[in-house]
Design a protein around this nucleic acid. Structure first.
Lengths: 333, 333
DNA sequence: TTGTACGCGTTATCAG
DNA sequence: CTGATAACGCGTACAA
């Protein structure tokens, strides 16, 4: 691959001149500039981003750490990031990889070795302390879907407790008082936060949700089916199901329908996330919209700004999910 | 950020020694090695991947070009790639960006500037000639979902024509003879290939599928609804619908059901891709499984191998989709 | 307007 | 076993 040196000698000028042409530098004669440009074309020259990063100490790149790509939720997250980076001509370095301490840590470190300018990180396994440590080391370090008070302005997150509250409130407003929950058994704080919110709303209306009315399983459709099945077999009484996410909600609906329980006529179901699936499944899912894509976009701009030394005005980047009313929730009969 | 030089002076040794420790070089005294290691720890040293790439001319990185992340199909593609890069400790540089010539070209060029060692590219807009050109320049250049005879061993692709054939064959075997098609209006070859396959199967059974029985729209759920609506409003007779993908199939089913046409009792529907959605929608979709994740994995290994100078034995990397029987296809009544 | 020379952080080749 | 030192490809003061 041709280097700047090759171009220089081919054009009969010095390295410096070629460099100026490449970077649209100011002090180059029009004739020279044109000649150098054509020669670059002919030789198929491409600047070496690594060499450039080495000397300028800027890489125009953003590191991304997410657990995986397959889940629509994370796909949306990625899309939100990509939209911004493309527009700003920033290259994405992606590291996916499960929710495990060691994997997440390695991902961040690898990105660091590549000297990414900024970083958007979705971490559930690393400790607050470690994350704070990274944040101090890396100016452009932003967390998504996590809130750590000490670095509040670096966190873009969703108020899960409020989300839980809104779900329950909606169900209750529709007339439901016998509520059950289908939640996630992942060891992260989100499920518990949502349950807290649900209970706060319930209690405010004098409704109790005993532990026996809450089932945990994997946060996917299968998990939804399983949890629902357990609830059914335990003969728990309910007319409203609050699911951890849309996939579980969909699974729960399937299981209900398989048992000849009509949704929403006999039992109402509400989801969380508002991913594509919510519109596809039957009945269409009433759910909470999680503005991941927008949040990811903000996180990206934030990370890039911080990296540039701009400090942001806002101290907090909290989002609240909004209710999307479709067909899976109705008044109990 | 501490450099190798800082470590060297802090440890009272030379650059070379530190470098050897970093790369587990052979000729270093145990005592020195240990001392240098602790100092690296203390100072939080991280090797600079850019500098390293500059001198070694290897970057342990893979460039990925795909249109977007949101579509489950591409998410699966990404996941397939990620699985093997993680395992091989290779960093992903991701460039998404629509199906447009200029965008795709820019994506590849940016990746090239970063001197990625290998590249997995999903391109539908660039010409064969240009792609062949890139392939000649870049040893580790592999195309996914596209077949160009001149660089056959660099192509990992699905036999769309065969896919179309299988879909139609299945419908016909179930007893359907009045077939209609809901296809994609994207200007890529895939839709036409599938239609060709469909017609080949139909003709083999003496069945004709006139153009009036084929509707085109965007390859998503909405497009499926639209195309279906057009078909219905034109009073075309059919008992079997062949959709371009699962999303369109799902849309078509919705539209049928909204018109009080039962699936599969009145009309059968078959999809393509076998994404998550196929299992989620009701009735569950009979579809063709597109092994994207596996294909992406192969493409990645291939790209990495080619980059290392290994040539592969296989000359062709063609996949054929397989029929997944669920609930949306039944015998006509 | 153009060229020289140095440094960015590493690896690798030689000597010692 | 260890240490100078020359690349790698590029940007940029400083000179000319």
């Amino acid at each position: 691959m041709a280097t700047i040196k090759d171009i220089a000698s081919a054009a009969g000028v010095s390295l410096a001149t070629v460099s100026r042409v490449i970077n649209n530098g100011p002090k180059v004669g029009d004739a020279t500039r044109a000649r150098v440009k054509t020669i670059m074309q002919e030789m198929g020259y491409r600047p070496n981003a690594n060499a450039r990063a080495l000397v300028t100490k800027r890489s125009a790149s953003l590191g991304v750490v997410i657990p995986e790509l397959l889940e629509p939720f994370f796909a949306a997250l990625g899309q939100g990031i990509e939209t911004v980076t493309r527009q700003q001509k920033v290259q994405i370095l992606l590291s996916a990889g499960s929710i495990e301490q060691e994997t997440e840590r390695r991902a961040i470190e690898t990105l660091l070795e590549h000297r990414v300018e900024a970083m958007v990180v979705h971490s559930k396994a690393l400790s607050d302390a470690e994350l704070i440590d990274f944040a101090c080391q890396i100016p452009g370090f932003v967390l998504i879907n996590r809130y750590i008070p000490e670095i509040a302005n670096r966190c873009v997150w969703l108020d899960n407790e409020a989300g839980g509250f809104i779900m329950a409130e909606h169900m209750i407003k529709q007339g439901h008082s016998k509520l059950a929950v289908v939640s996630s058994n992942y060891q992260i704080t989100d499920p518990q936060m949502r349950i807290d919110g649900i209970r706060r709303a319930a209690n405010a209306h004098g409704i109790d949700i005993p532990d026996s009315h809450i089932e945990f399983s994997t946060p996917d459709q299968e998990g939804g089916e399983l949890a629902m099945q357990k609830l059914l077999s335990r003969d728990v009484e309910f007319t409203g199901i609050l699911a951890y996410n849309d996939a579980m909600a969909s699974g729960a609906m399937t299981m209900l329908q398989d048992n000849n329980i009509a949704v929403p006529q006999d039992v109402s179901v509400i989801g969380f996330d508002d991913v594509l699936l919510a519109k596809y499944c039957r009945p269409k899912l009433t759910t909470l919209h999680y503005p991941v894509e927008m949040m990811a976009g903000l996180a990206t701009r934030l990370a890039l700004d911080f990296a540039m030394g701009k400090s942001c005005k806002e101290e907090t980047h909290k989002y609240t999910p909004t209710l999307i009313t479709r067909q899976s929730v109705a008044a109990p009969r």
